[in-house]
Structures are given as C-alpha cells and as structure tokens.
C-alpha cells in the first residue's frame, strides 16, 4: 500500500506526509534501525569536527607538517613502501565491510550459521585492524618519538591529531568487534529465530559506518 502510494507521489510529498502523519515518521523502518541511524548522524558530527579542527590547525600551522607518506612508510623486502601498513589496514576494513554485508544478506535469508561465521570473520578482521593500529602507534611513539604534545618531525599538533583521530576511530572499531561478537553468538543461540534478523542489519550499519569514517581519515590524514 505504502509502496503503491509512493510511486504516484514525488519524494517531497512523501517527506511532508511522513513528517506530518501524527504517527511513526520513519515508516517501514524498525525503530532500532532509525535510532542507529540517528546515533551515526551524531557520530558523523563528532568525527567531522575532529577532521575540520585538524584542517584548521594544519592550515594555520607555521611549523612544518610531517609528510605522512614518509612517516607511515614501512620496509618490505628491504625497500621502503609508503603507507604500506595503512594500505593493508584499509583493505582489511573493506574486506570486513564485505563480509558484514554478506552477513546481513544471509540474515534476511534466515541462514543463521552463515550469519554467525560471516559476523565472526568480520569481528576477526576488525580485531586484526586494531592490532595493526597498536603496532603503528608503538612504532610512532617508540621509534619516532611522537607524543600527543610533541613531535620531533615538526608541528607538535601532528601528534595530538593523530592520536585523537585514529584513537577515537580505533575505539569505535574495538567497540564494534565486541558488538559483532555479542550479536553473532546471540544469532547462533537462536535468540532471533522467532523475530526478525534486522539486528544483523543494525549491527551492519554501525560496522559500515566505521569503515566509512576510515575512508575520510585515510584521505585527509594519510593521503593529503
């Protein structure tokens, strides 16, 4: 019925009707999903504020900003490769996004064993991402001497923004791993057998958002 009505009215009419309908605004959207979207919207503001303040500091900085391409290069087979670890981390996060999308798809087919293993794989990839980030931090703190308040390679704020932005993102990944494991085991135990598997999609939204934030961090912090 709602689908039929949608085809003969424009998107603007749908929006006005939904907001003025005196009942649920987000029709055909489970409340948990609407709330997750609103949470992600607030998280978007937090991460963007971090990135915008990083931009403002980098643009007004009178000291030299370290070259991320060189700072984050790693030696592979005796040759320094720029951003090697970051590239691997990026691919791991994309792979985990793919397995998560598959888990959501399998969830709606009610194939719960497949959902469990795909979510478990997603969590493992997420955990390995955090592990690599810990390695990256160790290298930066131990070998390069970067601190949140100082940086031997130039602008002191490089350290503050690096640890704040990647740290906050890493915290999201870590929380996501826990969240994924909890939902995965609940799916396997059969908690959602008689209801719907939309919880898998909601978990997926959070996980894809974590990947989405990394896309922006990768572009603005590592590549710029």
């Amino acid at each position: 019925m709602a689908e039929a009505a949608e085809t003969d009215q424009g998107p603007l009419t749908t929006i006005v009707n939904d907001w003025s309908s005196d009942v649920t605004t987000f029709k055909a959207v489970p409340w948990g999903k609407a709330m997750m979207w609103i949470f992600l919207l607030s998280d978007t503001f937090i991460f963007t504020s971090f990135l915008v303040s990083y931009m403002a500091v980098r643009m007004t900085q009178t000291d030299a900003w370290p070259e991320p391409s060189e700072v984050f290069s790693l030696e592979a087979f005796g040759v320094p490769v720029p951003l090697l670890l970051i590239a691997i981390m990026t691919f791991i996060l994309i792979t985990s996004s793919g397995t998560m999308a598959m888990a959501v798809n399998m969830g709606y087919r009610k194939r719960k064993v497949a959902v469990f293993w795909l979510m478990f794989a997603t969590a493992l990839l997420g955990a390995s991402f955090v592990g690599m980030q810990a390695f990256e931090w160790t290298k930066l703190i131990g070998d390069e001497g970067v601190r949140a308040w100082q940086n031997p390679m130039g602008a002191a704020q490089f350290g503050s923004f690096f640890f704040m932005i990647t740290g906050f993102h890493g915290l999201h990944v870590s929380a996501g791993v826990v969240y994924l494991l909890i939902v995965a085991f609940r799916v396997l135990r059969g908690k959602y057998d008689n209801t719907s598997f939309e919880i898998v999609e909601i978990t997926g939204l959070y996980w894809h958002f974590v990947d989405l934030v990394w896309v922006f961090i990768f572009a603005f912090f590592y590549l710029w």
Binding site: H208, L212, V215
Partner: peptide, 18 residues
C-alpha cells in the same frame, strides 16, 4: 558504502533526507 552497504539507496526519502 552509504548507498548500497548501508542500504540508503532503497530507503524512503524521509529517512534519507533526515
């Protein structure tokens, strides 16, 4: 990511704009 993995492409315009 937003359009396909997060299914925004298939949501109602009300949620998309919100």
């Amino acid at each position: 990511i937003v359009a396909v993995f997060m299914h925004m492409k298939w949501e109602r315009p009300t949620l998309i704009t919100a």
